[in-house]
Amino acid sequence: MIWIEMSRDNIHGGGEWGFTKCLWSPAYKFSSNKKRKISWLYWNNILKVQQGDIILHLRGKKHFASFVGYSIAAT
């Protein structure tokens, strides 16, 4: 399977949580009125990544975004 990791900034967690080091996503987001937490199925896809999958790294905003590399999932 091929996946795309997207980040708008260079920090993206920093250190061992940094861009291209690991895949992570929020567990939930708040509803538009901020009264309740909701799970977002888009973020749940991270649980489907398997060892050997290819991850393409996309960084930047709008027309400045570009692919900066790729990785192979280790675990």
Rank of each mutant, 00 (worst) to 15 (best):
G13A: 07
S66D: 11
H57G: 00
A27F: 01
S25I: 02
W40R: 08
K21D: 11
V49M: 06
L47F: 11
Y42D: 14
N33D: 15
S32M: 08
L41N: 06
L58T: 00
D9Y: 03
M6E: 02
Y42Q: 14
T75D: 13
C22E: 10
H63K: 12
V68F: 07
K35N: 14
I2P: 00
A74V: 12
V49W: 05
G13K: 02
I54K: 15
I11A: 09
I11M: 09
I72S: 03
W40H: 07
L41H: 03
S31G: 04
S7Q: 06
W3M: 03
W40D: 12
I54P: 02
G14E: 11
A27D: 10
K35S: 13
L58R: 06
L47S: 10
G14H: 07
K21F: 02
K21V: 03
F19I: 04
G18R: 11
H12T: 04
K37S: 04
R59H: 04
W17Q: 08
V68T: 15
W24F: 13
H57A: 08
H12Q: 10
K37Q: 13
K61P: 00
K62I: 01
N44M: 07
Y42F: 13
D9M: 02
C22G: 00
P26Y: 08
I72D: 00
E5P: 01
M6S: 10
C22N: 05
G18D: 13
K29M: 12
F19V: 00
L58N: 08
L56G: 00
I46C: 02
S39W: 07
F64N: 15
G18Q: 04
S7D: 04
I55D: 05
H63Y: 08
N33Y: 05
I2T: 15
G13F: 01
K61W: 06
Y28H: 13
S7K: 12
K35I: 07
G13C: 03
Y70P: 00
F67G: 05
F64P: 00
I55L: 06
S66K: 15
L47A: 11
R36L: 04
M1Y: 07
D9W: 01
K21C: 10
S66E: 14
K34G: 08
G69A: 02
G14F: 05
T20V: 09
S66Y: 09
S71P: 01
K29S: 11
M1L: 06
T75N: 15
G18Y: 03
S25Y: 05
I4H: 06
Y70T: 02
K37I: 02
E16H: 07
S39R: 14
E5F: 07
S31Q: 09
K62T: 07
R8E: 10
W17R: 13
S39V: 15
R59L: 05
G18I: 01
